[in-house]
């Protein structure tokens, strides 16, 4: 099983230092939180989509189109019932929907879509090992990053084993299709036990192999990947910081882009 959103292209985004990309995505997340007016967030989403185009990775978004549409629709439908606004459009047994709450729902739908898109942007342009490496350089202790990298390496192996386990139980007559939640969980039990045991039989081997290769949790070590920070990285981080500052100014000082005040 191959699980990755990485889209191997040679664009300037792909070449950025992974630290820049992780930091950049975090900045975009915060920028999204500056406004709750749909028009403003739509603008941010449009910019993220433009960066996607620059990364030649729109097809990655297309792969997840159903998820994105679902996220959007869900938010738009749900939020109006939980937020109170001034201009009441509909009132029914204590539930009310207002113009402001509708707009807020729309904004949150767009924000959710932007979050996921920005996350995907990172995943589409950065390899797993670059993300891990970036995290180490951002100060995450090596043993933690090691656990993350090893888990990423093992997850497809265990997913394959899981698929085999499903087949093994189905061929013994286990019926996995169940409509209700409880039934679904219950049928998972004959699957979870072999998944657990067959994975745990690895653990001691892994730890033995690890020490045999000279691994010490707290010893210093060198790193094979040494991403270079270039002027372009600073340019990207600098402009994103400026954008964030500008957005904060608009929200805090100018009170722009607000539908419901008192909420992010």
């Amino acid at each position: 099983m191959n699980l990755t959103f990485y889209n191997d292209r040679a664009t300037w985004l792909h070449r950025l230092d992974p630290r820049t990309k992780i930091g950049g995505v975090l900045l975009i997340f915060v920028v999204c939180l500056c406004f709750n007016h749909p028009l403003f967030i739509a603008g941010i989403l449009a910019s993220v989509l433009a960066i996607f185009t620059a990364a030649k990775s729109l097809k990655v978004l297309w792969k997840l189109r159903f998820l994105l549409v679902l996220l959007f629709v869900f938010s738009v439908v749900l939020w109006p019932f939980f937020i109170k606004g001034k201009t009441i459009l509909l009132e029914w047994h204590g539930l009310e929907v207002s113009r402001e709450s509708l707009l807020y729902g729309l904004a949150m739908g767009l924000r959710l879509t932007t979050f996921v898109s920005a996350g995907l942007l990172l995943l589409a342009t950065t390899k797993n090992e670059e993300i891990t490496n970036g995290l180490i350089r951002l100060g995450i202790p090596y043993p933690v990053a090691f656990a993350l990298a090893t888990a990423i390496r093992l997850a497809p192996t265990f997913a394959d084993a899981g698929a085999t386990i499903v087949q093994a139980q189905v061929s013994r007559g286990l019926d996995l299709d169940s409509k209700n939640i409880f039934g679904r969980f219950k049928r998972f039990a004959p699957l979870s036990i072999p998944i657990f045991i067959s994975a745990m039989r690895y653990t001691n081997f892994l730890a033995m192999a690890l020490e045999s290769k000279g691994f010490r949790p707290d010893a210093p070590r060198t790193s094979y990947y040494e991403p270079q920070t270039t002027g372009r990285d600073w340019l990207v981080l600098g402009s994103l910081t400026l954008i964030l500052a500008a957005c904060l100014y608009m929200r805090v000082a100018l009170h722009w882009g607000i539908i419901i005040s008192g909420r992010l």
């Binding site: 390899k127 797993n128 090992e129 891990t132 090691f146 990298a149 090893t150 990423i152 390496r153 192996t157 690895y202 081997f205 892994l206 033995m208 192999a209 690890l210 045999s212």
Partner: peptide, 12 residues
């Protein structure tokens, strides 16, 4: 060691 699957830690 015996189990090759359990000796690889890296993603490439």
């Amino acid at each position: 060691l015996q189990d090759f699957e359990a000796q690889l830690f890296s993603t490439n």
